[in-house]
Design a protein around this nucleic acid. Structure first.
Length: 254
DNA sequence: AAGCTTCGCAACCGCTCTACA
DNA sequence: CTGTAGAGCGGTTGCGAAGCT
């Protein structure tokens, strides 16, 4: 990296070992925060942004510099599907990983996969549309008298999609859903996953995040074209549920 | 071995958000 | 309500390393 300076004389470019040492000792003495004071306290000819970034992305001892595990990559994919390019939020769910690291990893490793994956999917979609008529799933709405609504909550199996093919056969895919019925003021009732019951919301999120590849493709849970972003060779049985808390993800989105 | 290209990542830039006077 | 400063975020850049011809 170049050893240039800005017009104000502040150093830019790669950090030297000495600079790192000064910054580390400053943080250990005064703690994190008040970044505008850090350059002065540390005796560094750097702007506060540069100091903050260097600490957060490189020097902070809590940073995990090991290669991402399969579980973490999988988690990243799911969170990105959920949150988009909100790297800091994604990083917050991956202990020891920084937003910059997550962002870089995404751009260098995963984005290319996404593009090729999408191309494959659009080809398959075209192929499917040539031969099959897809009956799109409709939102679930219950009448006030529905027997489904007479219980606190219902575990049921619902056909997610029906594909009628040219030879007349109908293929139904099924997925276990847990839905909490909500009574509307006008008498109609809608089954929706949002609930104040934390166990229930956790179950719903678990369903959302764990719906298998083929089911996501036809599920009404996620209807965007790019919703099917799973990758092969991921071992879901090793999923570490400690990496995240579903309720806190709900908090993020609210 | 030399030159070129690609890849990975640290760092910068510009913008938005938030707190406070 | 408005202006200002600090903090934080996401997009982008540019350098060094690795791979290829």
């Amino acid at each position: 990296m170049e050893k240039s300076k800005t017009r104000s004389g502040v150093r830019k470019g790669a950090w030297t070992y000495e600079e790192d040492k000064l910054l580390k000792s400053c943080i250990s003495k005064y703690g994190e925060g008040k970044w505008h004071l850090v350059p002065q306290r540390a005796g560094l000819n750097r702007c506060r942004k540069s100091c903050r970034l260097r600490w957060l992305n490189y020097l902070n001892p809590t940073i995990n510099k090991e290669i991402l595990s399969e579980d973490e990559v999988d988690m990243m994919l799911r969170l990105h599907k959920l949150l988009g390019n909100r790297w800091s939020l994604i990083a917050g769910r991956l202990p020891g990983r920084t937003a910059n690291y997550v962002k870089n990893y995404w751009h260098t490793h995963l984005q290319k996969k996404m593009v090729s994956r999408k191309l494959e999917e659009s080809k398959e979609k075209e192929k499917l549309e040539e031969t099959d008529e897809i009956i799109k799933p409709q939102p679930l709405t219950f009448s006030a008298n529905s027997p489904w609504l007479n219980r606190k909550y219902i575990n049921f199996v619902t056909p997610i999609v029906a594909v009628s093919t040219k030879d007349g056969t109908v293929a139904n895919d099924h997925i276990e859903n847990t839905m909490l019925p909500i009574n509307d003021t006008d008498g109609d009732c809608a089954a929706q996953p949002y609930t104040t019951n934390s166990t229930m919301s956790a179950m719903w999120w678990e369903n959302l995040l764990n719906v298998s590849n083929d089911k996501i493709a036809s599920s009404s849970l996620l209807q965007e074209d790019d919703s099917n972003l799973e990758f092969p060779n991921v071992n879901y049985s090793n999923w570490n549920s400690n990496l995240y808390e579903f309720d806190s993800i709900l908090d993020i989105l609210n």
